[in-house]
Structures are given as structure tokens and as C-alpha cells.
Design a protein around this nucleic acid. Sequence first.
DNA 1: GTAGATGCAAAAGTTTTGCAGACCT
DNA 2: AGGTCTGCAAAACTTTTGCATCTAC
Lengths: 166, 166
Amino acid sequence: MVINMRNFLNWGSAMPMTALKQALHDQGLKVTRPRLVVLQVLATTTAHLKVAEVHRRARELDGRIGLASVYRTMELLERLRLVKHVHVEHRHRHYARLREDHGHHLVCNGCGLVVEFSDCRLDRLTRTLARRTKFRIEGHCMDFFGQCQDCARRSGNSRRSDGRKS
Amino acid sequence: MVINMRNFLNWGSAMPMTALKQALHDQGLKVTRPRLVVLQVLATTTAHLKVAEVHRRARELDGRIGLASVYRTMELLERLRLVKHVHVEHRHRHYARLREDHGHHLVCNGCGLVVEFSDCRLDRLTRTLARRTKFRIEGHCMDFFGQCQDCARRSGNSRRSDGRKS
DNA sequence: GTAGATGCAAAAGTTTTGCAGACCT
DNA sequence: AGGTCTGCAAAACTTTTGCATCTAC
């Protein structure tokens, strides 16, 4: 019996260590310093961090933590559904805390501004898909792209008139 | 005045070269062999190719094409809205042809099976978002994840009962 | 002829892996 | 004590960049 750890980080900075240890233990996993430090980093931000940034912050808490351990821990946490990786840029893999009100993004192609929103209303679509495909659907990602107000103004309406819309 | 190139690849293997050249020309771009070859590769498949695969296939058509040129061409095509990159794996950037009935994915976390679907019904959400954020929304991506029927059966219900859901 | 593209090779990143030693339980 | 986990360094990959050369216009 394993507790559902998904909401763990939503419980705020007061970490229920007992529950965490229990969960790790139940999976035959060990509670180690790197894992705790990475969790602490994730608990203190709502931003989407690239792995290198998680590592940098983790080092501030414990200078000995290696990059490889961060990668391994992020993978573990993703398996435990504590985080998920999102794709907001080409190059890096970013991780976001997984919350009950999971986040989606509206990304400006011009300046990179990211607006987060959570109300995705995909329940019906999810059910339809599951029924039609016989999949057991466990999650989704959805992001929108476009131009923010400023960039839209700056790049003018010329873009608009060409009929493209992506 | 730039033509809408989005449907270009939908026109089938009979490429409207005139239209393509016109579009490139209008943007001050040149019609070069590497660009044509990459387009040809993309026109002969509906799969989502990673860049290395596009390069491999392009080389079969023209052995001199360099990987860097493929990267540069994919970027160009994405700017022209002929392709978009999708994220089905961690490591690689995959590109998909952009169609009027743009594709979404349902990916099996177990075996990697990808089911494509196009009916996303996001029009209303798109409008709402645009109104609230003042973004000019140009596109979106949406993918679902889960277990296909076989993998769900294979991994059993043990997964289910432990409270985790992925 | 000239601006823009290409191919190559090198550079810059990101992610994974092997392994000896350290650490949880 | 014993199996896991870590840190380090090296390897493996992906993506970008610099530059001389070439090509489309």
C-alpha cells in the first residue's frame, strides 16, 4: 500500500516527512540527503525549473550534490508523480510541480512570456478518448502559443493578413 | 503578401512548386536543393521524425546534405508553419507535418504506441484564453498519456490499487 | 556580382553511464 | 552487513555556430 504522493508538494513548505518516508519505504527506496534537498528546492518555488537550475539551487543547500543525482532524482519523482516535465523551450527539459490543479501554458512566441492557467476543461474529451481507444488515460499536456499583446502590436498586423494562424 | 503555406503538404506528393517558390521568394528566401529535399522527405511520410531521421532520409536523396542544414531548414519550415515540433520523447525534438486537421497524440507510457487524433474541440477554450490574456493565439499542442489496453492489462491492476495513477 | 545558404568541423549543451566509495536501513 | 545511492568523470547525444565555399537570383 503506497500513499498517493501527488499532492505532497501542495501541502506547502511544511513537509510531511513521515508520509514521504513511508512512501519511499513502501517502494523499497531510501530516504537520502540528495532526495530531500531536491524536494526542498521544488517545494520553495512554483516555477518550472530546468534540471541545471534545480541542481544550482540544490547546491546552495548542499554543496556536494552532483548533477547526475539530480537527474536521477527528477526521474524518480516523475515516476512517483511528484513532478512532470513540460516543454516550454526547445533545448531543456523543464520540470513542474504536479498539482491537483495542474498547470498549462500560454507561451508568447515573441518574447517568451509564459502565462499559466489550470482550467483546462478536458474531462469530457478525456472520457471520450478513453472510451474510443480503450486507453487508461493518466494525464495530458496542453500548451498554447501565440503573441502576447505587446509582441502582437510590435510585430504589427502584417502577420495577421497573410492568413496564417499556425 | 505571403501565401498560406500551411496546407502545402496536404496537397499530396504533387507539390505545387510554383506556390512554394512564390512563398519563399516573398520572404526573401532562396529555393535551394537542401530545402527541396527536406520538403520531399516530409511529403512522403506522416510519421513524426526526429531531426536525425529526416537527415538520414534526406541523405538517401542527396548524399551531400549536412545535418546543420537540416536543422536550419526545419527551423525555417517551422517559421513558415509547414511543420511543428512535438514532444513525444525526452531527448529528441520530433517534427510533425502541420495539417488543417492538426494532430494530437495519445501516447502509451508502456510500449510507446502513439494514437493520433485531430478532433480537439479547443475552439471555445482558445477564444476564452485569448480574451482573458489579450494574446493573439496562433496554435496549441495537446497530448494525452496513459496505458494502452495491452499494457494496462499487462501491468495489471496492482498499479491501480496503490493509488498512483501513472 | 552579391547576399544568402551550405557543409564541415568544432563548440556548446544536455543527459546518461560506469564505478569506487558512502550511506541508509 | 548488504544492497542502494551518490559524486565524479567520461561518454554519448543533440543542437548551435563559425567560416570558407558555393549557389540562386
